[in-house]
Measured scan of single mutants.
Amino acid sequence: NRRVIAMPSVRKWAREKGVDIRLVQGTGKNGRVLKEDIDAFLAG
């Protein structure tokens, strides 16, 4: 159960899209999950 680094707005975006943010690979600094990462995860 790893800790995910993400801005609150990104966490909210993931929740709205029904995405478990822990499954998303972050591409930002220090592995931070970005809004673009959520979109890419949804795109496959």
Rank of each mutant, 00 (worst) to 15 (best):
V24W: 02
E36G: 13
W13G: 04
M7A: 15
N1C: 15
R3E: 09
D37C: 02
A43E: 12
P8N: 10
G31H: 07
K35W: 07
D39R: 08
G26E: 00
T27M: 04
V10N: 02
L42K: 07
G18C: 10
I21D: 00
N1R: 12
V19R: 02
Q25I: 14
R15C: 15
G31C: 07
R32N: 05
K35S: 05
K17M: 15
V24Q: 01
R11V: 07
E16W: 11
M7L: 15
V24G: 00
A40T: 12
M7E: 15
G26K: 01
F41Y: 15
P8R: 15
P8S: 11
N1W: 07
R15V: 13
G26F: 02
V24L: 06
G18K: 09
N1E: 12
G44N: 15
K17R: 13
Q25E: 12
G44S: 15
I21F: 04
L34N: 06
R22D: 06
R11E: 05
V19S: 01
G26N: 02
M7W: 15
A6V: 05
A40C: 12
F41A: 06
I38N: 01
W13T: 07
D37Y: 01
V24F: 02
A6I: 07
N30H: 13
A43T: 11
A14G: 03
T27E: 00
M7Y: 15
N30T: 05
L23S: 09
Q25N: 13
N1H: 14
V10S: 03
T27I: 02
R2L: 12
A6Q: 03
V4H: 05
R32P: 00
D37R: 01
A14C: 07
K17P: 01
R11I: 09
W13F: 15
S9C: 15
V4R: 06
V4T: 07
L42S: 07
P8D: 08
R22W: 10
D20E: 06
I21T: 02
V33K: 03
W13H: 15
G31F: 06
I5V: 13
D37H: 02
T27D: 01
E36P: 07
N30M: 11
R22K: 11
V19D: 00
L42W: 08
R3P: 11
R32F: 06
I21C: 00
W13M: 13
V10P: 01
A40Q: 11
V4P: 08
N1D: 13
D39Q: 09
F41T: 04
R15K: 15
R3Y: 08
G28H: 02
Q25H: 14
L34V: 08
W13K: 07
V33G: 00
Q25L: 13
G28N: 02
L34H: 06
F41P: 02
D39M: 10
A40P: 02
V33S: 00
V10W: 03
S9R: 10
R2T: 11
V19E: 02
E16H: 10
D39G: 05
I5R: 11
V10I: 06
D37N: 05
F41K: 04
L42Q: 07
G31L: 04
R15G: 06
M7K: 15
L34M: 09
G28Q: 01
S9N: 11
K12I: 08
R15H: 12
K12S: 08
A6E: 03
Q25Y: 14
R3T: 11
A40I: 08
K17V: 12
D39P: 01
P8G: 09
K29N: 09
K17S: 09
V19G: 01
D20M: 04
G31Q: 06
Q25W: 14
T27N: 05
K17L: 14
Q25R: 15
D37I: 03
L23F: 11
Q25G: 07
